[in-house]
């Protein structure tokens, strides 16, 4: 255990120092943790429970709008906001932080409520019907948001400008997302280690049998979706502020980008494992940034090809491949996991 603690510590220290060592890359590093959050929250449903959702962006977008609306309505009149949103220094550091904190908290609450309500219906669907239904949910949400004037409709919503007093914007959001990712990681680690983890794994392996065994599958499924939605909703609130401009279909409910990346990152790293989504997200984000720089104009072609290669040749993901390659490494871990479950893969 002590070695594990040391390694966690090493990763933690490296992550804490990264934005100080590479100050020019703070925003990209912040997005790295956003990607980790995307993959982790998707994997709760897709990996651990076998419910492949294409609609998790719904909670991302919901969180974005809730946070932005709270930030706006707390200190501004809706009409007036359209005229001052961009002015630096309109909000003091304290006001900004209050608005953001309250917004993020409400984003989490709203996402959980939405997941609880939607879950009762949608989680009754199985397999590909669930996948396509959630796809429809994400896209419909974007279109509907584009029709609501209160949240800017198709013109989108600008989040308040980050006040100078709080220092560097990239740094602030880096640590915000880092903290959120760490909290998510350890919450999931704790959840997977207990009865909850066993139950949702049972649902993945055979839902009917799990139900026959007396597991309240609907309850577990709904809770799992709520957990996923909670962290994703909060992340959404942060992403809205990091991007600075919320467009209903291209930023908030961006199913064709964020929505698909979530799935890919989890699969790339190895779905159904604790570390897999983290590793997948890191590799995916870095690859994508490299494509952007060096495959100018063809980067999306490369991305499409990458998706095909990943799902065709690495459907079990990196950790899955490693496990297949060196089973003995994982073999002796089984005992350890039985004693202290939750190591992850």
């Amino acid at each position: 255990m002590s070695r594990t603690a040391a390694l966690y510590g090493a990763v933690g220290v490296a992550a804490l120092l990264a934005p100080l060592v590479f100050p020019a890359f703070q925003t990209q590093l912040a997005f790295l943790w956003v990607m980790v959050l995307f993959a982790l929250t998707w994997d709760v449903m897709g990996g651990q429970m076998g419910y492949n959702s294409f609609g998790n962006v719904f909670y991302l977008g919901l969180g974005m709008y809730v946070t932005a609306v709270v930030q706006r309505d707390l200190y501004f009149d809706v009409e007036e906001y359209a005229h001052v949103a961009g002015a630096v220094g309109t909000l003091s550091a304290g006001e900004y932080l209050t608005g953001l904190a309250l917004g993020l908290a409400l984003a989490g609450v709203a996402a959980v409520l939405a997941a609880a309500v939607l879950g009762s219906g949608i989680l009754g669907l199985r397999g590909h019907y669930f996948a396509i239904c959630t796809l429809g949910l994400g896209i419909a949400a974007g279109e509907i948001a584009g029709g609501i004037d209160y949240i800017g409709a198709g013109s989108g919503l600008v989040t308040p400008v980050f006040p100078d007093a709080l220092g560097r914007r990239g740094m602030f959001f880096y640590y915000l997302f880092f903290a959120l990712a760490v909290a998510t990681f350890f919450t999931l680690r704790w959840l997977y280690a207990g009865r909850f983890g066993l139950a949702i794994n049972a649902i993945r392996d055979d839902e009917d049998k799990a139900e026959a065994m007396g597991i309240h599958t609907t309850r577990y499924k709904t809770v799992a979706w709520c957990v996923s939605a909670f962290f994703l909703g909060i992340a959404g609130g942060g992403v809205g502020n990091l991007v600075g401009f919320i467009d209903p279909t291209d930023v908030a409910f961006a199913g064709a980008t964020f929505g698909v990346w979530m799935v890919l990152m989890a699969i790339l790293g190895g779905k159904g494992t604790l570390w897999g989504p983290v590793i997948g997200a890191v590799i995916f984000h870095v690859t994508q940034e490299l494509f952007w720089t060096y495959l100018f104009g063809w980067q999306r072609v490369a991305l499409g090809a990458l998706i095909i290669v990943i799902v065709v040749f690495f459907p079990q993901g990196i950790l899955g491949w490693v496990r297949q390659r060196w089973p003995e490494r994982f073999g002796h871990r089984v005992d350890e996991e039985a004693r202290a479950p939750g190591g992850g893969a």
């Binding site: 492949n52 397999g127 996948a131 064709a256 072609v301 499409g304 799902v311 065709v312 459907p315």
Partner: peptide, 28 residues
Amino acid sequence: ARVVDRDLFISILATFGISILMQQVMNQ
């Protein structure tokens, strides 16, 4: 052909990859 007998979700993703690829190639 490589995903035809796999899990349905894998084929959804693979065809999704094809869809992105085709969009971008058509764009080019």
